[in-house]
Design a protein around this nucleic acid. Structure first.
Length: 256
DNA sequence: AGTATTATCTAAGTTACTTCA
DNA sequence: CTTGAAGTAACTTAGATAATA
């Protein structure tokens, strides 16, 4: 209260029963006008555009030019900075929101694309397996005279090897032998916490029991996309953002 | 040199009032 | 005419900083 001198001792004694606040509030400017004139606002705006903080000397000069108290100019600049800042924040928020929405829709379309690819692969693998089983059945009848123990061990070996036959198309191994599709930093084996299993179930929908080797086909991509490590950070950021606005993002369920 | 006090400024939040749909 | 929301000038408070004793 050292600037402007609006709380004079005369005022204090004139209305001793008023609260401090009321007394101050009643002190409008010289002409008892509440709002500044367009001309005054225009000058203040112009000054604000060139500098958002006023030097004391400029403040006094501007106040004199506009017929205001220096304190009024100071307060106007304070309020202006506050309004400007909140506007700025709003603008930045809108930009972030727009970017986020774009990313979300990209994510959705990639998810759909991936789902289609997985279905296709599954179809192929199932057909292949059926064909081989049929071939084996007919072969078995022809060699039924051969030793059964030998046959069994070979068949078992075939079964064990089968997943490997379809995997090379999908997988990429790094120098450490780790699997990965576009996310070489992540070991998908680590993600065996039920979380990815839920995702698998979502993808495999109708399949009551997925054959292990079929699951192996999709594992690398799944673990990459759904790795909690990869997405957790993003999730927390985005939910913070969303908490302030809308909650109806269908793909939120994908993460939870 | 280090410390306490004072003055000044600012951001953030609030109040009282006006304007307008 | 009334009412509620939005805008605005002025205010309070708390923290930072610089000058001074």
């Amino acid at each position: 209260m050292t600037e402007g001198g609006e709380y004079s001792p005369a005022m204090m004694s004139a209305e001793p029963f008023l609260t401090m606040k009321k007394m101050k509030k009643s002190n409008h400017n010289k002409n008892n006008q509440r709002r500044f004139s367009d001309e005054q606002i225009k000058s203040l705006e112009m000054m604000f555009e060139s500098e958002t903080r006023l030097e004391p000397r400029k403040k006094v000069q501007l106040a004199r030019e506009l017929g205001l108290q220096p304190r009024q100019v100071a307060i106007w600049f304070q309020n202006k900075r506050a309004r400007w800042k909140s506007k700025q924040l709003e603008t930045e928020y809108n930009i972030l929101r727009q970017n986020y929405d774009n990313l979300a829709s990209q994510f959705e379309s990639l998810k759909k694309e991936k789902q289609a690819l997985v279905s296709e692969r599954l179809k192929e693998a199932t057909q292949k397996k059926t064909q081989e089983e049929e071939r084996q059945c007919s072969g078995d009848q022809a060699v039924v005279a051969l030793s059964s123990t030998h046959h069994e061990s070979e068949n078992e070996e075939n079964r064990r090897r089968k997943p490997e036959e379809v995997r090379p198309e999908m997988e990429m191994k790094d120098d450490k032998g780790h699997h990965g599709v576009m996310c070489d930093h992540h070991d998908y084996e680590d993600d065996d916490n039920g979380y990815s299993n839920n995702i698998k179930r979502e993808y495999f929908g109708g399949f009551e029991e997925e054959p292990d080797h079929l699951m192996n086909i999709v594992e690398p991509a799944d673990s990459c996309l759904t790795s909690s490590d990869d997405w957790r950070g993003f999730k927390s950021d985005t939910t913070t953002l969303l908490d302030q606005s809308s909650n109806n993002y269908p793909w939120r369920d994908f993460w939870s």
